[in-house]
Simulated assay, not measured.
Amino acid sequence: MPSYRVLLAVGSLHPGVRPDALLPRAAAAAAEHTTVEANDIMMVRGEPQLVVRFTGADDPFALGVGAAVESTVGGLADVRSARVTRRDGGAWTLVGAV
């Protein structure tokens, strides 16, 4: 089964949301639909980016998981961008934006 990841660039948190709540909630949103392989936070050009890696049957399924994660995180913080990538050999290929 292919490996995918959803990457979400996040901005300001909504009032009352703790920063340490974002990644666990993002991973839990993906886990409602599939197996989560890993999760992490990266800094990209000074902006935090949540990364949730998961398995998926195909690209449309992965985009659906990405949309669910984006919706969950969007209720907690401003999501500046959200995209899904697929592992192809040693590289990540863009599947699409969510």
Rank of each mutant, 00 (worst) to 15 (best):
S3K: 13
Y4L: 07
Y4H: 12
Y4N: 09
R5P: 10
V6S: 03
L7S: 07
L7Y: 00
L8R: 08
A9L: 04
A9C: 01
V10P: 01
G11H: 10
S12Y: 12
L13E: 02
H14L: 15
H14K: 15
P15F: 04
P15K: 00
P15S: 08
P15Q: 00
G16L: 08
G16W: 09
P19Y: 11
D20I: 02
D20T: 02
A21S: 12
A21V: 01
A21W: 10
L22C: 11
L22K: 09
L23N: 00
P24Q: 06
R25D: 02
R25N: 10
R25Q: 14
A26E: 05
A26H: 07
A26P: 08
A26Y: 04
A27K: 10
A27Q: 09
A27C: 13
A29H: 11
A29C: 03
A31N: 09
E32V: 09
E32M: 04
H33L: 15
T34H: 09
T35N: 05
T35L: 11
V36K: 05
A38E: 12
N39L: 00
I41N: 01
M42A: 14
M42F: 14
M43N: 13
V44T: 12
V44C: 02
E47M: 15
P48M: 03
P48R: 09
V52T: 03
V52K: 02
R53G: 01
F54I: 02
T55M: 13
T55F: 13
T55S: 15
G56W: 01
D58F: 06
D59S: 08
D59M: 08
D59T: 09
P60K: 09
A62C: 12
L63Y: 05
V65L: 10
V65I: 13
G66F: 08
G66R: 00
G66C: 07
A67H: 05
A68P: 11
V69G: 02
E70K: 14
S71K: 15
T72K: 14
V73A: 05
V73E: 01
G74M: 11
G75S: 09
L76H: 00
L76M: 15
L76G: 00
A77W: 06
A77C: 03
D78N: 13
D78L: 15
V79I: 01
R80I: 01
R80L: 14
R80A: 14
R80H: 14
S81Y: 13
S81C: 07
A82L: 04
A82N: 06
R83N: 06
V84H: 11
V84F: 12
R86M: 03
R87G: 12
R87P: 12
R87Y: 02
R87T: 07
D88A: 15
G89P: 08
G89F: 10
G90F: 12
G90T: 12
G90C: 07
T93K: 09
L94M: 04
L94D: 08
V95D: 03
G96A: 00
G96T: 08
G96N: 04
G96P: 03
A97Y: 15
V98T: 14
V98R: 06
